[in-house]
Amino acid sequence: MSGDLEEKFMRRIERGEKIESTDWMPEEYRKLLLKQIHMHGISEVMGAYPEKEWVPKAPNLRRKLALIAKVQDEIGHGQLLLRLAEDLARPLGKRREELITDVFMNRVKFHNVFHMEAPTWADAGIIGFLVDGGAIITQASLLETSYAPYARVLQRICAEESFHMQHGESIVLALAQGTDAQREMLQGAINRWWSAMMFFFGPKAMSGAAQRMMEYRIRSKTNEQLRQKFINRYVPRVWALGMTLPDAKLKQDLETKEWSYTEPDWEWFGNMVRNNCGPKSQERIALRREAHEGQAWVREAMMAVAVTA
């Protein structure tokens, strides 16, 4: 019976049909999607933390407004994605509260880049330029996902990310046109983030789960395809700014168009993401816990209002 359903489901996928949250789906599909969207949503939320650190220290009012707007967008994207995760998790007996608390129980991972330090204003710019650039490439590759609610939400997310991209580039361009000290600060930030960006897209040899996601058309590009697209767009731009990248191996094969690059320290980054032991992991997770637990009384008080209304 279930084998029959699964076969029908796969035929829908192969025909390029989109799946809705209320449609029958194999448990494996549901779980892979949930893991992907949950991690995506939590990464949006945790992604706000390195940037929010710069809100009080932004160099002028316009930058401050833009940074606040961006932090708002990231949290908003987290909300949209967690809502999708919630629908997927319901038949598995998991609810919103757990989806949120999982991050401080170490039960869901978030992107490696958000475990890292952002010590200078140039880091705030590089996060918008490279990290958002990488995130946009990943998200754009998911626009054709077989799960319709995810595809619809991603359209909105990508549209809003287009401002994040411009905001990051604006900071980077201003610094690149600035004083020697500003250019040096920019170079320092590039050096700090580059290898983390190579890790961001994941290993060349993809996990069994990632393979299954390709078969279910949850995603359609390999880690390496995404990394190559990122390198191809961003390396020439960093070089054009007169900046260097901390990788002597970066070179494009003129025939195959493939870029060679130095592998990031997979072990070190992998361990950081699994065990939340990056330079800023614990501090940011503690802030997240504080926000969630500290506001518990507000969520409860709102329920009282809803009952009496």
Binding site: I136, S141, L143, C158, M165, K229
Partner: peptide, 8 residues
Amino acid sequence: IDDLVNDM
């Protein structure tokens, strides 16, 4: 962003 989407 359209350039990045078209890359895909």
